[in-house]
Deep mutational scan, measured.
Amino acid sequence: KKYKIKVYVKDKKTKKWKKIKEIEVDTKEEALEAIKKLPPNYEVKIVP
């Protein structure tokens, strides 16, 4: 079972969220580790 991490950042001009990358991992633990490495201003969604 794979997890997709969708990473969004808020556009300063439009104030809208835009997706900047998608990370695919195998476990939820890996997903949480990957999220920890991202800057705090990123919004993250984990999709099972």
Rank of each mutant, 00 (worst) to 15 (best):
K28D: 07
K21D: 13
L32R: 09
K12N: 13
I46E: 01
L32P: 00
K45C: 07
I23S: 02
E22M: 04
K19A: 04
K1E: 10
V7M: 05
K10H: 10
V25N: 00
A31L: 11
N41M: 10
K15H: 14
I35V: 12
E24G: 14
K45V: 09
K13D: 08
Y42D: 02
K37E: 10
P40T: 10
K16R: 12
K10Y: 11
E43V: 15
K45G: 05
D11Y: 05
Y3V: 05
V44I: 12
V7D: 00
A34N: 05
D26S: 11
L38S: 01
E43L: 10
Y8E: 00
K6Y: 10
I46G: 01
I35N: 00
K10V: 10
T27G: 06
K12W: 08
K37A: 08
I5G: 00
D26N: 15
K2E: 05
L38A: 03
E30I: 04
V7E: 00
L32C: 15
I46R: 01
K37L: 12
I20Q: 03
K21H: 11
K13A: 14
K36P: 03
K15E: 10
I5Q: 00
P48I: 15
E29R: 07
V44K: 02
I20G: 01
K15I: 02
E22T: 15
E22Y: 03
K36Y: 05
K15G: 13
L32W: 10
L32N: 08
K12S: 09
K18P: 00
E29W: 12
E33Q: 13
Y3T: 02
K10N: 04
P39I: 04
K6E: 14
K15A: 08
K12R: 09
I46D: 01
V9E: 11
K13Y: 14
Y42F: 12
Y8P: 00
Y42E: 04
D26K: 09
K12I: 11
K36N: 11
E22S: 05
K12F: 10
P40V: 10
V25E: 01
K10L: 08
A34W: 11
K4S: 13
W17N: 02
Y8K: 00
I20D: 02
P39E: 05
A34Q: 13
